[in-house]
Amino acid sequence: MSEILSVKRLKKKFGDLLVLDDINFSVREGEFFSIIGPSGCGKTTLLRIIAGLESFEGEVLLKGREIRGPGADRVMVFQDYALFPWRNVIRNVTFGLEVKGMRKDDSLKIAREMIKIVGLSGFEEKYPHELSGGMKQRVALARALVCDPELLLMDEPLSALDAQTRLEMQEELMRIWQKTKKTVIYVTHSIEEAVYLSDRILVLSKRPAKVKDVVEVFLERPRNRFSAEFAEICLKLHSLLK
């Protein structure tokens, strides 16, 4: 698999506070890549840098091109969904297509298909406040996927959900990922979630964060959370995080 994103000698300061210190890693095309680390270590900041929402020192290359500012080739899915409350489901999903200048009927057609893929058919005309947390996250995912981004950036997307919905959404996420074959960079604070979802997991240290390790997960999908191999990887990550 070829490299799609490479991060070299990346540094980030907030004033005098050094948050990210000499971060180096690369992401392969089509893989599900997770970032974990102690809370407050700068995982989200790292993702926001890749999204183009933060300044930084160093190099971030997407397919060899330096990233400058945000763009629809790297769509971000936020922890609190950030759905536009004044737009109903379908018009939230068409947003990225509208700003690209696509014709209305084409964008509606694509949005309907994507809404079907994320399992929300029948809810097209609902407004965000009428939806549950899991449904909102599906809308946010559909809104990102219709842009057909090179990278899908997800910032703890399931952390606001209850435990039951969270497990369901992990399975859904796998189903959608396998169907759309997107490269995903996924920030989470849950080791178990990272192991369930990822091809590879980047482990960050405490602030100022450095790369501790990149752990490869070779388990077959769908993964069994109760298998010995699964537990073994979780344990390994757990000790890395200490």
Binding site: L53, M76, F95, G96, V99
Partner: peptide, 21 residues
Amino acid sequence: IKYIEAAMTLGAKKSDILRKV
């Protein structure tokens, strides 16, 4: 700000952000 950031990562230009957000 989260709506503006969401719009930006979805590819919105300045004029889109004013009109649509």
